[in-house]
Write a protein that binds this DNA or RNA. Sequence first.
DNA 1: GATGTTTTTTACCATTTGGTCAAGCCACGA
DNA 2: TCGTGGCTTGACCAAATGGTAAAAAACATC
Lengths: 210, 210
Amino acid sequence: MPQSVDARAEKKPSRIQLRNRRKILEAALDVFSQHGFRGATLDQIAEAAGLSKPNMLYYFDNKEAIHVELLSALMAEWLAPLEVMDPDGEPLEELLGYIRRKMQMSRTYPRESRLFANEIIQGAPRIGPDLNQRLKPLFDEKCALIRIWMQAGKLTPMDPGHLIFSIWAITQHYADFEAQVQVLMPDSAVAWDTAMQHVETMFRTLLSAE
Amino acid sequence: MPQSVDARAEKKPSRIQLRNRRKILEAALDVFSQHGFRGATLDQIAEAAGLSKPNMLYYFDNKEAIHVELLSALMAEWLAPLEVMDPDGEPLEELLGYIRRKMQMSRTYPRESRLFANEIIQGAPRIGPDLNQRLKPLFDEKCALIRIWMQAGKLTPMDPGHLIFSIWAITQHYADFEAQVQVLMPDSAVAWDTAMQHVETMFRTLLSAE
DNA sequence: GATGTTTTTTACCATTTGGTCAAGCCACGA
DNA sequence: TCGTGGCTTGACCAAATGGTAAAAAACATC
């Protein structure tokens, strides 16, 4: 009996499969993050991956499968900085550490940031379920934690949810709107350093105001 | 001699032209803001506008012309809240007023916000020149103004450019990432009100820290 | 080196998409 | 009411796009 598509997904993948799937996902990250789902073409992705289009479709059933797998695989990585935040740590330093990690992510993985940004802007049509099942619980958990910290007088009291939104908005801004930042601050080499300093100082001021 | 395309652009447009061009741009705003440039199709726009595709292409030379005109026409409207900021006003109130107007814009015109977001995320391939010629001067001017205010001890000193980025990032976040916000704060009716309060309080704290 | 399996390629297809063209419609002034 | 010129339409087209089928090639295993 020939190996079916389902079997392929369940059995342990060969070395070639591993390599090619990784090449495809890497190429897809490039193309999807730049053009969004509908704007990306299979030909573009295949060329970027160095494979023929049918060869690529041997590894993924269709365009959407590539996109979904990419988002799904990246989600964990993307949430990691928030997960790390420790209930037993020093509140202000925990939050500032999170902010620093988030800035570092935007700097190191701007494509990933833009991939998610594209998907969310367009209404999260393919990642919607994941948002509910993976992001929401984590968000609620950390909101509760921050609220406790604030009630203990360790942080300036405010709405924890909107605080997290602010952190996301600002940190991701530098990755998602890089084109604009570069126009307005052409001296981009130093922009990242000043940006990181600004963001940290800003939230430190905000969170430790009496 | 029949009226040429160029003449059409220069002569004063008829009532029908005005009406149809507006219908097209309105429809294009809907479609482009949801799918980005490459993801939007002329058929979608034409249907949303209630016109046939050839009829639409009678008013605009091609897809790109619609997109460019849309962005260009909206740019002024988009920059207005920043332009209003008055050098002779009370610094803190001027900035908070700007922030309030920007939040109001995101609330009232989320499609416009997403239209720009899509374009910038994808590297601003079509609006690049406009950023340099229209946004950059205004940005520099207001940065200088804020710097003067800070040097006069009226505001907490910080990098004015990054301050503006922070304002943009947070205010636009609620429009651009609305899908995510709605998942994480399902009680969306009140989310806007609490958001506006949070953002204002946040920047007031930040800007008036000693 | 024969044999079964996985991987790759070649050729192809249906649909979608951006765009054209010529003919017809219609509003409006003479 | 009759042209005339702006407006609209239906039919059409070439290229791009997502995807398939089947044969060929490469590979692993004996």
